[in-house]
Simulated scan of single mutants.
Amino acid sequence: MSFLSLLRRDRDVLAFGFAFTFASSLGQTFFISLFVPSLSQAVAVGEPLMAVLYGAATVASALCLPALGRRLDDTDLLRFSVWVLLALAIGGLVLATATQVAMLAAGLFLLRLAGQGLMSHIALTGAARFFEEHRGKALSLTGLGHAAGEGVLPLTVVVLIAWLDWRWAMALCCLVLAGVIAPAAMALVRRNAKFRCPLATLVGVESRKRASSALLSDPEFWRLLPLLVASPFTITALIFHQGWLAGSLGLPLAVFAAAFVGFALIQAPTGFLSGAVVDRIGSRRVLQLHVAPFIAGVLLLAVFGNGWAVWAFLALAGVTNAAGALLRTSMVAELVTPDRLGAARSLVSACMVVSTAAGPAVYGLFIAAGLEPPAVLLTAALSLALCVLPTIRWRKLFRV
């Protein structure tokens, strides 16, 4: 089935997924970072403390994600969505009115948990369990919301901050995304019992409780996990330290900022291609190959370190980022039954979120140790390549 045929057949479900991944932008790093200077000034904290608070909120949200995410297996999807939207809106409004460190920490936690964590979890888990036959294509269409948010919201937010003030800008974004777009999408699937249905109610409570433990006891999961989290760990770390990279390479930071256009634009076609290939050959082979473009981009930046290498680096990072976002759902969906998908995917998402919090800190240690950009980038490329090795079935590879 083609993408257009799938869109025509299940446009309401796909529109719901797109809207929720788009609205999850409220909790994504690229969105929150636009308000960091204003938040630091309003709450009278320096950016180093802001980074600590942000990392702590990210880790705390990741620790909560498995316990909350598994509820999607035994709760009506729309009822669950209402509570998540409420938490997302409260988090945004708390940040928009923050005057104290406690308010700042609470707002960051709610945005990271409800936005980056649960909004994406609802959209991708819902699509993965509803579309068993064309899962890859459906996940790529659902994930377009992430790319749309990265492409549309940064400039929009900058304009709103200049026009209205940062507090009103954040409040307006929360109102539109969490108060209008996402609820409108929920109305589209209100009568779709199959999409809303908590599949785990059909298999019993004990089966649901075993979902995460079964995944944790599966050796296959542990072989795949490093590769599932390697790209977000490394991409987040290198983008977080882009100012150091630019300065050390003798480039203006504006080069990196402009190159993010390539990072955003490449993700839509990559998502389409990855979804079609996953449907054809399965997730494992695509998982093993999906870090290759990013490794190539890292090596180009390490060797050349000029403006066009930055564009290549971020464009190829976008390819890996888009494919990885799809694979973290499709791969898990191939390891567990649909009734356990919510618990299993939330566990993987928690690992991914922790990796994005740890990445900047780990690479910060490399920088503090005095490593130059080529050494840091070569370390990144090597670590990504090493994560592929456990996923290779060596006995099958060398079987005569």
Rank of each mutant, 00 (worst) to 15 (best):
G247Y: 10
S212H: 00
Q100I: 15
G115Y: 01
I266R: 01
A276K: 11
D339S: 06
Q41D: 15
A259N: 03
L88Y: 11
V52C: 13
A344N: 14
F233I: 09
I235W: 04
A259T: 01
V354G: 07
Q288M: 12
A380R: 03
R129S: 13
H241P: 10
S283Y: 02
A343R: 05
L314K: 00
V348H: 03
D73K: 03
G282R: 07
V157E: 06
A67D: 09
W163G: 10
S33D: 10
L386V: 15
V36Y: 10
A368G: 09
L265H: 04
I122S: 01
L26K: 02
R190P: 15
P374Q: 09
A87G: 09
A211R: 00
N321V: 06
A200E: 06
A193R: 13
A302P: 15
W83P: 06
A344G: 12
C197V: 13
R399C: 09
L249A: 02
V176L: 10
V176Q: 03
I239H: 00
A138R: 00
A182S: 02
E220P: 01
V45E: 09
L26T: 06
S213D: 14
T379A: 04
C387Y: 00
L386C: 09
F31W: 02
A385F: 05
L139S: 07
T320M: 07
V376Q: 01
L141T: 07
W308Q: 07
L108G: 07
A264M: 08
M50P: 03
L118A: 09
L139W: 02
G307D: 12
P232R: 03
K194W: 08
A246F: 04
V159S: 04
A51V: 11
A230D: 04
G359F: 04
E150P: 03
L382F: 09
L78Y: 08
R8S: 10
R9Q: 12
L227F: 02
L238V: 06
A42F: 04
I122K: 00
L118T: 05
L95C: 07
T320A: 08
V59L: 02
R208L: 14
G275L: 06
F263W: 08
P66W: 01
S38L: 07
G143I: 06
T329V: 08
L378R: 10
G17V: 10
Q100S: 14
M119C: 13
T320H: 02
V158M: 08
G282S: 10
L228K: 01
G179E: 12
A369G: 13
